[in-house]
Design a protein around this nucleic acid. Structure first.
Length: 552
RNA sequence: GGCCCGUUCGUCUAAGGGUUAGGACACCACCCUUUCACGGUGGUGAUACGAGUUCGAAUCUCGUACGGGCUACCA
């Protein structure tokens, strides 16, 4: 590509940028220098349907960073009328974990991020499990060998280990299998053609490694970071095809992205160092003009660097979307769902971790996110996860969600804790009364259990010191009044209650708190007359009587 | 060690050469509320450092420091 200088061209570029859906961060126009790939902006805009993929390896829980990658994929696809593909990267047989794939699907379902194509949902580009695509990878690796871009390597794990020991120095603590060493190893570059042929004929275990060129500068344009460049001499000869004929990630990601017609490839920043391998495979195999646009997403950091499930256990917040139990160790790692997060809030907080729409808006529904999302507003720096802020998002979502929508999940939680919640009508009213006080879903139990069962303990300590005969008599009168009352209305009750207090020369404040504690058990909860109204006449009178005997 | 990426309040971030550097979370104070919350008002608090370019730099360039990632026949 050429560096654009004249103002007209710059203007034209901007127009194209807009036409192309603003996929490209504006800053990339600033620090771009020479690129070995064609300027993406010069590609025919929207020539093909947008297709993105999330490609997890089913080896355990799905954590924050993973869900955010799914989210950004999903939002980008929906925003651009494209397809969101879920591909299972299960090429490492030794890391197979039972149930992990179903778990991923469950998480996506809970979060409302349904793939358009996947092993579960089907699609025209299957199979979507790499283990089921095994036969198709070898030919591409062989093609690279034929082209001279890759080679057979016969080194055993022991030999590799020996190499790492032998060449390890203080200056170079982790020697790589690269151009400086490959001729010292057993491979089709160091062996004669005859020897190689012989070994292959014998069926000797071997892998295929990419032959990284020396002294080439390789660069590509990342949609988030602009131009990123590498010196190929410093990259090692990564294994492309393993001895069991399974591809490594490096080969599989290129082959599958090509075969599945992926147009935009998003992944975590931890993949950046191996990007030159992938770019080279694209160049050799399918041509750089076919390569998807890359976007390396900033990492989500825990208190100490990259977020790990250990952080959750250590610092008391979830890192997985849902509960995950390791089938081998039986170790349970708590998820956001079980912790009491609403999926809407979870999505919302994840979206805002590294992205914003440029305004001060922070609360977004899924639809609003789809509308507002754009990759060029994704931050390039890693973001530290702040659990306090995460809880704030959930609290906001609980407050703004209507009681009726909250009802099923709240009901489940209350029932799991052994409460029978009575009619939905009642529960809905209760939810409306207490939801402002609930940050996490289980808070509904603490905030509303007294509506459904008598308080287990009564905070008598807060009443007794100021308790006296006058108050005792006042409440006796209250009971009498309530008993005779034909109606049962919160406002009316409040008026009468206060009038009675005045008639007895008692300040309302002095009897309001005792009244609350009688009904609720403690110093918390909604307006006390609202509580009494929902509790009903009989129950209210019962609780007053019961408490009176405790206070005396 | 090498390579790559990054760096604005404690945290998430806005500001695309000209702003008293804005917002949110958290924290503090006050108001509302005869409970706890919600809500409202206000406050503390940041451009890592050093050069350069420029009339003017958080913003562009270089260097330093610091942080993170990668360095497997894992993904």
């Amino acid at each position: 590509m050429t560096v654009v200088r004249c103002p007209e061209t710059i203007h034209l570029r901007k127009v194209i940028l807009v036409l192309a859906g603003n996929f490209y961060r504006k800053r990339t126009t600033v620090n771009r220098q020479r690129s070995t790939i064609p300027d993406p902006v010069s590609l025919p805009p929207m020539a093909q349907k947008v297709r993105v993929r999330f490609a997890p390896s089913p080896t355990g829980g799905l954590h924050l960073g993973g869900v955010r990658t799914v989210l950004y994929n999903y939002l980008f696809a929906k925003k651009n009328g494209g397809d969101f593909v879920l591909r299972i990267e299960d090429t490492d047989q030794s890391r197979y974990v039972a149930g992990a794939e179903e778990y991923i699907f469950d998480c996506l379902k809970w979060a409302g991020l349904t793939p358009d194509e996947s092993p579960l949902h089907g699609g025209a580009y299957g199979p979507y499990r790499q283990s089921e695509r095994k036969p198709m990878y070898r030919q591409y690796a062989e093609q690279l060998v034929t082209q001279g871009h890759a080679y057979y390597a016969f080194d055993t794990p022991e030999e590799l280990e020996k190499m790492r020991q032998d060449f390890k120095t203080e200056q170079n603590p982790s020697p790589q299998y690269d151009h400086t060493l490959r001729l010292k190893m057993r491979n089709s570059l160091s062996l004669t053609a005859e020897e190689t042929k012989q070994l292959l004929a014998e069926g000797a275990r071997h892998v295929i490694r990419i032959k990284m060129p020396e002294n080439e500068s390789l660069s590509f344009t990342d949609m988030i970071r602009g131009e990123v460049s590498f010196d190929t001499s410093l990259v090692d000869d990564k294994v492309l095809l393993k001895a069991d004929n399974m591809p490594t990630y490096h080969l599989a990601v290129v082959v599958d992205d090509y075969l599945m017609k992926i147009t935009h490839a998003f992944r975590g920043e931890e993949w950046l160092p191996s990007a030159p391998v992938h770019v080279l495979c694209w160049k050799y195999l399918f041509g750089l003009d076919q390569m998807p646009q890359w976007a390396h997403l900033p990492l989500i950091l825990g208190p100490n660097g990259k977020l790990s499930k250990r952080d959750g256990a250590k610092y008391g917040f979830p890192v997985f979307a849902m509960n995950w139990t390791d089938p081998k160790t039986n170790e349970l790692t708590e998820g956001f769902r079980e912790k009491g997060f609403l999926p809407e809030a979870f999505i919302n907080l994840l979206a805002l971790l590294g992205w914003n729409d440029g305004t001060e808006k922070e609360l977004f529904s899924r639809e609003e996110l789809i509308q507002a999302f754009s990759l060029e507003r994704v931050h390039s720096a890693g973001a530290r996860f702040d659990y306090e802020k995460a809880k704030w998002f959930n609290h906001e979502w609980i407050k703004q969600t209507d009681s009726q929508s909250l009802l099923p999940v709240v009901k489940t939680i209350l029932e799991e804790k052994g409460l029978s919640t009575g009619s939905d009508h009642l529960l809905e009213k209760v939810i409306g009364l207490v939801k402002d006080r609930c940050t996490l879903l289980p808070d509904f139990y603490d905030q509303s259990s007294f509506f459904f069962q008598r308080p287990a303990t009564i905070d008598t300590d807060s009443v007794k010191p100021k308790w006296n005969e006058a108050k005792q008599l006042f409440f006796a009168e209250v009971i009498r009044h309530f008993t005779l009352s034909a109606t049962w209305d919160a406002h009316e009750m409040e008026t009468n209650f206060k009038e009675m207090a005045a008639a007895n020369r008692i300040k309302p404040g002095e009897v309001l708190l005792p009244f609350r504690i009688m009904l609720v058990g403690g110093k918390f909860g909604p307006h006390v007359f609202d509580i009494a109204a929902l509790l009903g006449k009989e129950e209210t009178i019962h609780r007053i009587k019961n408490a009176l005997s405790l206070f005396a």
